[in-house]
Design a protein around this nucleic acid. Sequence first.
DNA 1: ACAAAAGTGTTTTAGTTACACCCATGG
DNA 2: CCATGGGTGTAACTAAAACACTTTTGT
Lengths: 235, 235
Amino acid sequence: MQKYSKQTRLLLAVDCIIFGFDGETLKILLIKRDFEPEKGNWSLMGGFVQANESVDQAANRVLTQLTNLQGVYLEQLYTFGNTKRDPLERTVSVSYFALIDINKYEAQLSKDYHADWFPLKKVPKLIFDQQDMVEAAKKRIRYKAALHPILFELLPEKFTLPQLQVLYESVFNTSIDKRNFSKRVLATGLLIKLDDKDKTGSKRGAFYYQLNKQNYYTKFQSFINILPNPDTLQV
Amino acid sequence: MQKYSKQTRLLLAVDCIIFGFDGETLKILLIKRDFEPEKGNWSLMGGFVQANESVDQAANRVLTQLTNLQGVYLEQLYTFGNTKRDPLERTVSVSYFALIDINKYEAQLSKDYHADWFPLKKVPKLIFDQQDMVEAAKKRIRYKAALHPILFELLPEKFTLPQLQVLYESVFNTSIDKRNFSKRVLATGLLIKLDDKDKTGSKRGAFYYQLNKQNYYTKFQSFINILPNPDTLQV
DNA sequence: ACAAAAGTGTTTTAGTTACACCCATGG
DNA sequence: CCATGGGTGTAACTAAAACACTTTTGT
């Protein structure tokens, strides 16, 4: 089966940076690595690409293994290819980032995989070059969210404008005027106002909204304008 | 040296989409593949990642092989990992795109490598999934150029505003008001006006400009605003 | 003297920011 | 009845778009 003779064959891995939002801060999901080297240390969920699967399929497999979720937003981030990144054997890793609704994630799974959620500011030391992967993922999510409506992937089907605003404020580490925020968000045409309210956050309650899926898919690739001053954003 | 036993090892390649601008249209550089399969057909410049080099190094090596240029703008684009993309043997390819000053490219090299420049609208049939790579690169260059000043990498050290405008108009397939264009470009603070003129394009001549390297490097990551209506751009 | 491309300024329009009060409700 | 968070409108300002004429010079 080796038709290109004399060429080096090497290990190819995938690693997933899995983001979730708990209503207050953006978090990532890490596991305790269960094999050597670095066994027992915090790590991204990952795995080797198998002979019979594409790289994308490998990333999806690995993500589903840990979360038991299907159809999740998953995007290729960057391929890390330094020769020494895995000290045991040359391994190139294709990193992906995923955005999941943290409520759909079952806590039970954390026990099975010795996994845990970490706020971005409290990420523990990670194995190999995974610190770089997380940094790249943080940059990418901010970059992309400044231009495209990806953050909705982190919220449940029904959400309120205050919830959405907290999410944006947390991702961009800024505070936004709620009047202007609501104007900009509603001007995108991506939201449908529902009749019922979320009463958990206040006595008056805040109206629920849901995504207008049609507009969402057609406008996903175009630039949107939810943030103030996106021009001055350093990304 | 195989420490992770029972895992699949596979071939890893790099492929480069090399862009150049001849003053009229955006072009890419292709070669005639000199080994089987698909020997003699048009192909991107590429090669296998060797045991002792990083993936980035492989991309740089391959680019320098064909162009004899160093220090060129080279950015990782996407990793293509379908199982069947190379019919001979499973090969995952990390694609990169490069922006070069077409004047620095020596025509002699084209003869050595049986290479040629093709306008984006006249790219011939390519091997494997390289058509997808070129499409991804076209999208990426437009996307990135709409937000960041990468197109200067395609121009010589000294260039005129009319030349720059033709470049933008060609990349975005649009026509731009020259008064507004010059206002926006100069407002970026990226350009230094020189004293001499390019007289090849007109009797009066157009002033040369060069990049303010300092501002260029510090502002490279922030969003700039040279295009009209970037919001409505489909990318 | 005229053709051909370079260069420049102003008005109009649209979009963004800043800002403060009333509303609804549970306790 | 009051504390808490939700919801909304307007005026001031800033940025973008539209638009046309003058300059230079080689032939």
